[in-house]
Design a protein around this nucleic acid. Structure first.
Length: 214
DNA sequence: AACTCGGGGCA
DNA sequence: TGCCCAGAGTT
């Protein structure tokens, strides 16, 4: 028997009141620009790796000006320890140049301008808005997408729709906590490949677990 | 809608 | 050691 949405949501919110381990899911940064770079670097890779590379990078460079002067190849050499480094180097150098040319050297503070930067899609833009400018947004990455769908907090194969459903369902003051929890839960428990349903506190509320025959 | 970029983690 | 994982751009 499927529980209703409010009941599920309230149960998750109860859990948020408890202590749950804070994993390395945060991108460290000292400036909006550093967060932007870290977030572009983070596509398809883990935050732990990205934090290491970003920290090294920003010992040597820190402004859009510094990065705009680099050649993509030069930058690529410095970020080889993470994947997709040629693309990411081009994105970062080009984004830096656009920031200088079109945005007065400042990282844009709104969604549509952020999307004009190469390497910045809806997930990256949302992460920057929340992390650098405390603007309410709900970055839907694969963890948020998978967990929300499995649990039944959302139901769609389109990220945009999942984002809308979650924002409708969850009170705005809880967006940050819920987002953090969904990512934590997706990484540690509700994993893509072999989810640890047996230790999941939400299994009795979970569509995926019910369907599995748990 | 499918393909590409790429290294790190884990079976 | 080969398969799986994590976004954005291009064709």
């Amino acid at each position: 028997m499927e529980k209703n949405l409010d009941e599920k949501l309230n149960f998750v919110i109860d859990i948020l009141g408890d202590k749950y381990p804070a994993p390395e899911t945060e991108l460290n940064h000292d400036s909006p620009f550093e967060l932007l770079v870290a977030t572009i670097l983070s596509a398809q890779t883990t935050d732990v790796q990205v934090n290491k590379v970003t920290e090294e990078l920003f010992k040597e460079y820190d402004s859009p000006d510094d990065f705009a002067r680099l050649s993509p190849n030069e930058l690529a050499d410095k970020i080889k320890s993470i994947g997709l480094y040629r693309n990411k180097s081009k994105f970062i150098v080009e984004s830096s140049r656009i920031i200088l040319a079109d945005f007065d050297g400042q990282v844009p503070r709104n969604f549509s301008d952020l999307l004009k930067l190469p390497g910045v899609g809806r997930k990256t833009a949302s992460v920057v808005l929340v992390g650098a400018f405390s603007t309410p947004a709900f970055p839907v990455d694969t963890h948020v997408f998978r967990v929300s769908n499995r649990l039944g907090l959302a139901s769609s194969d389109r990220v945009e729709e999942v984002e809308e459903q979650l924002k409708d369902l969850i009170p705005e003051e809880l967006w940050a906590d819920m987002h953090h929890w969904l990512i934590f839960h997706g990484r540690e428990v509700c994993k893509a490949r072999s989810p640890k349903c047996e230790i999941c506190r939400l299994k009795n509320y979970c569509n995926y677990y019910q369907k599995k025959g748990g």
